[in-house]
Design a protein around this nucleic acid. Sequence first.
DNA 1: CGTCCACGTCTAC
DNA 2: TAGACCTGGACGG
Length: 266
Amino acid sequence: MPEIAEIRIMSDFINREVRSRVYYSIRKSFISKVITPMNLTFEYFTIKSECRGKELKLILTCKATGDKKSLICNMGMSGNWEVTQKDHEPKHMHLMFDSMDNTILGLVDTRRFAKWRWGDWNYGRGPDPIMDHDNFLNNIWNNIEDKAFEKPICEILMNQAYFNGLGNYLRAEVLFRANQNPFQIAKDAINDNPAILELCKIIPIEAYQMGGGQLKDWDNPFELEADTFNEWIKCYGRKDMLSVVDKTGRKLWFDSKWKSNCIYDF
DNA sequence: CGTCCACGTCTAC
DNA sequence: TAGACCTGGACGG
């Protein structure tokens, strides 16, 4: 489910929901295997959300002292946020924030790949390609001689040290919209076709404005038609495109015009 | 019923 | 560079 567009939508959703609420407790489900201790000394606290690439940061502020603690959340494959009534937690809600108004802000995650920890951003991941685009570009141009850029462009677009927030559907859409041979060596591809880097901002913004990708039961802040995303997506998962398993084991979707360039076995 | 597949990391041979 | 980690939906017999 979540790549950078969906993470931003989740962050917006959280900020809208928590704006007028005060929280008093954090819990995790009994089944959760996340070992992060959930004890919090704040008696009452407010919440604010930020995002950076595929990471989400919940900043908790103590009502009494103004002290802050940050929880960094990675949403895995199926993580999403919901607000429900107390004692009506849906199945697969594994992290819960209890509010004084008897609602719960919770992380719902069927596959339980989502993780959370106290602390700051993982700076091993690159700058946000949308909100911090200049640093995103600098990080790439300053490291263009890195061995990572000797790999095919389709592979490095999944490398979170440089493309924090891109995932399997966004890389397919970026490459397609850039009219880019997915198998060209990344350094050459970026030098020949720097529009790729602009599309790493433009495409996620479009996906964000569409309300995100393939999300079922999403509380869409834009109130768009349900199939808007399916009309927008031009490559990923489409019958008129080719797919092949790449070196990292992920399925790469690409325009059949590049078939003769393909370096992976069909 | 069974098998395959999924928008992502992690760690361990 | 395979697997491990997970659940459930789609699809086939």
